[in-house]
Amino acid sequence: MDAAKLVMMANQIGRFFAGQRGTDPVVGIADHLEKFWEPRMRAAIIAHLAAGGTGLDGPVRDAVGRLDGMRTGRLGAGLKN
């Protein structure tokens, strides 16, 4: 998967959750990626982070960083839906 495109998409998601109040954006971003990104996309962004994560915004880096540990995790409490 094209890393630059995935970075752009992840940052878009990050920008939304960073704007929310009363919730941790990192949880929201990680949850969104977990719920809507197909495994090979998640693998690609995780690999991109491992390779330095060029271009990833702060909270997005943190969220991608959590993905590894959440691979089989439950649905998070990010966005209240």
Partner: peptide
């Protein structure tokens, strides 16, 4: 149990 590819993702994965 994992989400699948969206249309646009399919195109990207195909090129991949």
């Amino acid at each position: 149990a994992e989400p699948g590819l969206r249309i646009g993702n399919m195109f990207d994965a195909a090129l991949d």
